[in-house]
Amino acid sequence: MAVANQDITKEMFLPAEIDRTENERVSGEVVSVWKDAVRRFVQNKGALLSIFIVLLIVLLAVSVPYSHNYDPTHQDLNRSNLPPRVSALSWVPFLNGQEDGIDVYQQRGIKKDFWFGTDQLGRDLWSRTWEGTRISLIIAVIAALVDVLIGVTYGGISGYFGGLTDNILQRIMEIISGIPNLVWIILLILVMKPGLIPITIAITATSWISMSRIVRGSMMKLKNQEFVLASKSLGAGNARIVFKHLIPNSLGMIIVNTMFSIPAAIFFEAFLSFIGLGIRDPQASLGSLINSGYEVLQLHPYQTVYPGLLICLLLIAFNLIGNGLRDAFDPKLRH
């Protein structure tokens, strides 16, 4: 071989230079937990579509009250039980103002359009539906926020301090959660009289429990890890450890759980309206609209259709967003 004939001299061998900084270099982009979660969430088409739907509904619920034809409480028996009519779309069945082939608008000489029709008292259902959506959303969001506040505090104290504190708090919780939430909610509303605030309080009364369980579990897992020990040995106090280390590390789970408690609150509000413990007239919520629509379901189904459709859309969308977030924050749970 040609190479073998060459003289191999000692000078040809040099010690390789080792660049110690090379060991520390990270190849590729640094991906934080949050970035990673966002990246995964964006890939979930169902969840993205759901966010779009929720945003659209929220936008309408917020903006419709400022439009010129907004009038959720005006009663006029001359225009009671009008079917929906949108003049521009009169070729679409169900939007042409006809019921059983009769043009009710013409019959009664009404010029104005009622996009979602009117109810038994002649109130505009377009306005009432969005008013109802707004109230349902307000209840749901407040309930979810109170959930976070109570659940994180209770679960955090229980999980972080452990021992006797944990034992007492857990025994109390066991009894609270042993009572079905239906019973809690109905009793609380009966005592406080139906209204926006009592309904919110009643819904929150039991829903914080699952949040506190999750936070407690995550606190117990995290508090024994090395980075907490390191922080402690550097002299960090309880408050700093909890707020700087433990809560940020459990934030993903807290957000996911909040997302699931919103549809649960919307459902319970509608449920309460259904059994006569919901928002009272002249105020409206999606549940109370569906409930009053049911009374005339067989004659005027359109009165139930729009609020019913909205509540379904909201519940499905929020659940899909919740699923998407859960998968995004914890890919291990992905099925």
Binding site: P263, A270, I290, L297, G308, L315
Partner: peptide
């Protein structure tokens, strides 16, 4: 399943009652 767990039973009841009943 996503639809079934999200939509409350009273909505299903209404739909079924209207279409299959009425």
């Amino acid at each position: 399943a996503a639809i079934g767990t999200s939509i409350p039973s009273f909505i299903f009841a209404g739909v079924l009652q209207y279409f299959l009943g009425v």
